[in-house]
């Protein structure tokens, strides 16, 4: 059980690190939103899943309820975070922000 928990936590940590590096290193607004939206969703998913499993070590009705609540958090984050990213990108395109390209290094 604990091995599974550690695996999930490390998996989530990997994605969080990747997301953080991506937010700093990516060249422009749109591509920065990509790690912010996607990797955080997956990172939170595996981390909270690991914590929910760890919480079940002492199995009882109370801890089961708590774990179900945690999995509900995953569900709602999974639903809302990509939508928020999508609408931010949408707003950026509507406002006329140009995307980055290799030829045009400096975004005007």
């Amino acid at each position: 059980m604990n091995i599974l928990v550690i695996f999930f936590l490390l998996f989530g940590l990997f994605f969080f690190t990747g997301g953080a590096v991506g937010i700093i290193r990516m060249p422009d607004f749109y591509s920065r939103l990509h790690p912010a939206g996607k990797l955080d969703t997956l990172g939170i998913m595996s981390m909270v899943l690991g914590l929910a499993l760890y919480n079940l070590n002492h199995f009882s009705a109370g801890t089961l309820l708590l774990s179900i609540k945690m999995i509900l958090i995953i569900f709602f984050v999974f639903l809302s975070s990509p939508t928020a990213t999508h609408s931010i990108v949408d707003a950026g395109i509507r406002a006329g922000l140009r995307h980055w390209s290799k030829e045009q290094r400096r975004v005007e």
Binding site: F76, L79, S80, T83, H86, S87, D90
Partner: peptide, 11 residues
């Protein structure tokens, strides 16, 4: 926006 509308309606 269809995605926004649908997700908000669910949430």
């Amino acid at each position: 926006d269809l995605i926004m509308k649908t997700v908000c309606r669910i949430l």
